[in-house]
């Protein structure tokens, strides 16, 4: 069982940028049209620094950026089950075609590349982790963030981001209805800040319940905005019991 404060959060999906957009979505969750092109502007970065940011990196930076103060050092957790599938497919296609690989794309073709880009662009020198789990990657990423709090950090950033995979992956990837990124700034439940909400998260034995209709991170945003106090996310043998405690 873990407990943490969500001090602040941001989310992005195609057509869902402002808090008001997300409030509308939370009232009536639906799949957002995703043309695989629309991406956040990341206007806080000069063009030269945006040149190596893929779409998933932009989504990650756009949501995480305002949650970290100027000059603040925060542990960073990047969670993504599938990673940058369009770039992966491009590299694999080049190999099949006998074409040389783009040095830039090859250099960024590791799961922690986006965490590295965050570190460079924000001058972050502390702990950073990149994890990939199953459909409950969101809960595992939060566990990693809470472990950073337990290790002494006053706050930690957790970003879970997925990109709509290219059609070639349709047969294998069923849990990304549209691209999205959710960034949470976690704090301790006894922190002096009064902003945000406190949550208890407990893992129990799954009972074969139906998987969540939405990616877990998006369903959390929905519950957060809908003022829901308890809900469950079940994946295989793992049932995650969520409870709002403040």
């Amino acid at each position: 069982m873990i407990a943490f404060r969500v001090e602040d959060w941001r989310a992005w999906a195609p057509g869902l940028e402002s808090t008001a957009d997300w409030q509308d979505w939370a009232r009536a969750p639906h799949a957002m049209p995703d043309d695989a092109q629309a991406q956040p502007a990341c206007g806080f970065l000069p063009a030269l620094q945006r040149r190596r940011l893929g779409r998933l990196a932009r989504m990650t930076l756009e949501t995480a950026w305002p949650l970290c103060g100027e000059g603040e050092q925060l542990p960073f957790v990047f969670g993504s089950r599938h990673g940058e599938t369009p770039q992966t497919l491009t590299l694999l296609s080049d190999i099949v075609d006998g074409q040389p690989l783009s040095p830039t794309q090859f250099g960024l073709s590791v799961h922690n590349a986006i965490a590295g880009q965050w570190s460079i662009l924000r001058g972050q020198r502390g702990e950073s982790a990149a994890i990939a789990g199953e459909a409950d990657t969101f809960e595992h990423a939060l566990l990693e963030g809470v472990l950073q709090l337990a290790a002494g950090a006053p706050s930690a950033l957790v970003v879970v981001a997925e990109e709509l995979p290219p059609p070639a992956y349709a047969q294998w990837i069923a849990d990304v209805p549209f691209s999205y990124a959710v960034a949470l700034r976690l704090g301790k439940t006894d922190a002096t800040t009064s902003a945000g909400s406190d949550w208890r998260l407990e893992q129990a034995r799954g009972d074969g319940a139906t998987p969540c209709a939405w990616p877990h991170a998006l369903d959390f945003v929905r519950a957060l905005l809908a003022g829901e106090n308890t809900f469950q996310h079940t994946w295989k043998a793992r049932r995650w019991n969520w409870q709002r405690i403040r």
Binding site: L48, P100, S102, P103, T104, G107
Partner: peptide, 17 residues
């Protein structure tokens, strides 16, 4: 100048090729 780095040089060499 423009502010490119060594990875950009590799990328440009590939583009010229």
């Amino acid at each position: 100048g423009l502010g490119l780095d060594s990875v950009d040089a590799l990328e440009l060499a590939l583009a010229l090729q």
